[in-house]
């Protein structure tokens, strides 16, 4: 089967690539565009390491076909910082040591930012349920929840 030409906006830039009809968006991001920040931990939508925003909606990029990205706006972990300035979620993950190996971190950063785009007053329980689709095997989630709370506080103060 021939490849499909896809045009999408990725991290604010127009990107074009040729995708296999059966290729996942995650594979296209990683293999075709070399945006390897999004990780494959399972390929079945269970771990959240490949989380991206698609037209403002949090998605597992392993569960979306690459040709479906046609005309969509996609934000990956590489598009979260503003140039050299880290997003508060990224900065607070560093300050709270909310990562150990760092493999699940890109997905958690994307997912946590998506939560804070909706609300700056999340409870601990809301954070825990929002992030329940992002597996982390290293931290036990404690420092992650604290980092997200601290990022929310900083964004509230800047509001």
């Amino acid at each position: 089967m021939s490849k499909i030409h896809v045009t999408a906006t990725i991290n604010g830039e127009v990107a074009e690539f040729l995708a296999e009809p059966s290729q996942s968006l995650l594979d296209a991001l990683r293999d075709n565009l070399r945006l390897t920040g999004s990780k494959e931990g399972c390929g079945t939508g269970d771990c959240g390491a490949c989380s991206v925003m698609v037209d403002g909606r949090l998605m597992c990029s392993c569960l979306m076909l690459a040709p479906e990205a046609q005309g969509k706006s996609i934000v990956t972990v590489e598009g979260i910082a503003n140039g050299e300035k880290l997003h508060p979620v990224q900065q607070k993950f560093l300050e709270h040591a909310a990562l150990q190996c760092g493999f699940c971190t890109p997905g958690l950063i994307v997912a946590a930012k998506a939560l804070l785009d909706r609300t700056l007053e999340p409870t601990d329980t809301e954070i825990r349920y929002w992030l329940a689709g992002n597996l982390c095997r290293c931290t036990g989630y404690d420092k992650i929840v604290r980092a997200v709370q601290d990022a929310a506080a900083e964004l509230r103060a800047a509001r």
């Binding site: 990683r30 070399r34 945006l35 390897t36 920040g37 999004s38 990780k39 494959e40 990956t76 972990v77 590489e78 979260i80 910082a81 880290l86 990224q90 993950f93 560093l94 300050e95 040591a97 990562l99 760092g102 493999f103 971190t105 890109p106 950063i109």
Partner: peptide, 22 residues
Amino acid sequence: RPIRPDGVDKVTGRATFGADFF
């Protein structure tokens, strides 16, 4: 409790893990 040297790479997607090498 300083910030780890490899931290920024790991919160921005720059860090190169096993499958990220071509």
